[in-house]
């Protein structure tokens, strides 16, 4: 008897929301980032809006925070596989790329040279009011390009990549976590 490899089961579909006044519009730019060790991810995700969990992770060196960045996120390139039946293709996951600039050029050299060697860190990134965390550990590639313009700034230009099945879902940024005062 042959075995069919396909999924006929219905996925649970959540209700979409409607906000007619668009009061909850979120504006762009990756404004802050954090790197969370894979051993601490579950703890943070149990209550991501709790700043105390972030503080504990920071103190234990299981979280590193860069409070001020300038970055973008590509939203993910879909990975498609062959579909079955009448479905030509299906999305099996995404390849995500985020790029951000860190202005602390001199101070963070050792940090980037050390973190780029590790594959044990999840990537958290903040926009205006929301933060999300990558579902899988990321690869981190820092660069420090120098332009010819006398008035240009030399900053860290970092590329972060990972692959996972789903889009990262946002949560409300915990109060005060992404600030220089929080790191002091």
């Amino acid at each position: 008897m042959s075995t069919l490899i396909y999924n006929p089961c219905e996925e649970e579909i959540f209700d979409p929301v409607c906000d007619p006044c668009l009061d909850d519009i979120e504006h762009g730019r990756i404004r802050s980032i954090a790197l969370i060790h894979k051993s601490y991810k579950a703890t943070i995700e149990s209550d991501p809006e709790n700043p105390n969990l972030w503080a504990d992770g920071l103190n234990a060196k299981l979280i590193f925070i860069i409070p001020e960045t300038l970055g973008s996120f590509d939203g993910g390139s879909p990975v498609e596989a062959t579909g079955y039946g009448d479905q030509s293709t299906k999305v099996t996951g995404y390849n995500f790329v985020a790029n951000y600039k860190d202005p602390n050029y001199k101070g963070n050299c050792n940090f980037y040279n050390s973190i780029k060697k590790s594959s044990n860190w999840h990537f958290a990134f903040r926009t205006e009011t929301l933060t999300r965390i990558s579902g899988k550990p990321v690869s981190i590639t820092p660069k420090s390009p120098i332009a010819e313009d006398l008035n240009s700034e030399v900053v860290w230009d970092v590329e972060v990549k990972w692959a996972e099945k789903d889009q990262p879902c946002p949560f409300v940024t915990p109060e005060g976590v992404f600030s220089c005062d929080f790191l002091a």
Binding site: R29, R31, S32, P67, E68, T69, L70, K101, S152, F178
Partner: peptide, 8 residues
């Protein structure tokens, strides 16, 4: 022309 960092 240079954009700010963080929320700036």
């Amino acid at each position: 022309l240079n954009k700010g960092f963080g929320d700036a």
